[in-house]
């Protein structure tokens, strides 16, 4: 089990906590389906249940203005946790406070202050232009006409959706639709925005655009972002902090940067030198050499980077070099695989 130290408050400045979760647990009883007629009849009178611990003692907290990635493999307990935080589902035990409220008991009050985008479940009316859905949502959230108008204008500008505000949603491209979808979830100026796989199925350029938008919302409105995604690009470009959950438990909770450093004790170094490389050192593996370029893999447990460079520079000159971390994808799959219970 890998649990890094509790995430420290930024520079000791006391920001207020928007989500506080302590010892959260949730288990499900699912009926075991048996095949065959006799078994089916038997299970009708004496059903057999199987218990799954979807969420098994989770604690964490989120501060206002944070951008958090909440990740884990399918079935890890992510969506259960989010359903509990947003009040759709109640928990078995544990303490959950969102914006100071009990999400399940005070679901309606909480709903005014959080926004959600859940993958396939669109808020937009398929046959109508987005602006109609925006005004309907404004009414659902009890915004008065003026405030709604102002807010919609603001979002239209930020999301640059003015040109298709009046086009029926069914005629929009996926990227355009997602932009409208996010704008729709922000009509009521939520303090926390829950995003589930916002960039799934989009091309690289549109993905980047959506990521930038999310960053903008975070900096302009100080909206706390709670993001789940399988796309490590989303995580590394938007999020400062990541919580990794697996088998219903938190296996990692720290900054995204730290995640890269502390997991892979290996770095890859690309070098361009004065003359061909000649080097033999413990913890250094030469992956490739060609003329005066080389690619090395350095194991930081065995040797320091500076020691390696010092050694090279004794006999050679470094003209250019790149030190790179392994891709985040690998890091995350490593975290998943290390936690086999």
């Amino acid at each position: 089990m890998i649990i890094s130290g509790n995430y420290k408050l930024l520079q000791g400045r006391s920001l207020n906590t928007v989500i506080q979760i302590q010892n959260l647990r949730k288990k499900f009883n699912t009926k075991i389906k048996s095949s065959g007629f006799a078994a089916a009849v038997k299970s009708l009178f004496n059903p057999q249940y199987q218990t799954t611990h979807a969420v098994d003692d989770i604690s964490f907290s989120v501060e206002r203005g944070e951008v958090l990635a909440f990740i884990g493999p399918n079935g890890a307990g992510k969506s259960t946790t989010i359903k509990i935080i947003t009040g759709i589902m109640y928990s078995d035990s544990g303490n959950v406070k969102v914006l100071g409220m009990d999400p399940h008991r005070q679901r309606k009050q909480l709903a005014y202050r959080i926004g959600t985008i859940f993958g396939q479940k669109s808020q937009l009316w398929f046959h109508l232009p987005p602006v109609d859905s925006f005004y309907l949502l404004a009414d659902i959230y009890d915004l008065d006409r003026n405030r709604a108008k102002k807010r919609i204008n603001f979002l239209t500008e930020v999301f640059q959706i003015g040109s298709y505000l009046k086009v029926p949603v069914r005629k929009l491209s996926l990227g355009e639709r997602i932009r409208c979808e996010i704008a729709a979830s922000l009509i009521h100026e939520p303090e926390i925005l829950f995003l589930d796989e916002p960039t799934i199925g989009l091309d690289v350029i549109v993905k980047q655009r959506i990521r930038n938008l999310i960053k903008t919302i975070n900096s302009e409105d100080k909206t706390t972002i709670f993001l789940t995604s399988h796309d490590t690009g989303d995580i590394s470009s938007i999020c400062r902090r990541a919580i990794v959950i697996n088998h219903g438990q938190i296996v990692w909770d720290d900054t995204v940067n730290k995640m890269k450093y502390s997991f892979f004790k290996k770095k890859t170094v690309d070098l361009r030198l004065q003359s061909p490389l000649q080097l033999e050192m413990d913890g250094v593996k030469i992956l490739k050499t060609k003329n005066s370029s080389a690619k090395l893999e350095i194991n930081l447990d065995l040797v320091d980077l500076t020691a390696v460079f010092d050694r090279i520079m004794q006999t050679n000159q470094i003209k250019d070099m790149t030190v790179s971390n392994p891709p985040l994808d690998e890091v995350i799959s490593l975290i998943y695989s290390k936690d086999k219970r």
């Binding site: 359903k83 947003t86 009040g87 759709i88 679901r107 309606k108 009050q109 709903a111 005014y112 959080i114 959600t116 859940f118 479940k121 808020q123 659902i140 959230y141 009890d142």
Partner: peptide, 17 residues
């Protein structure tokens, strides 16, 4: 289809909404 979630997340009484 689990679409009930959408209505549960609105600040309105679920059934009439």
């Amino acid at each position: 289809n689990g679409e009930l979630d959408v209505y549960l997340l609105h600040p309105k009484p679920v059934l009439p909404n």
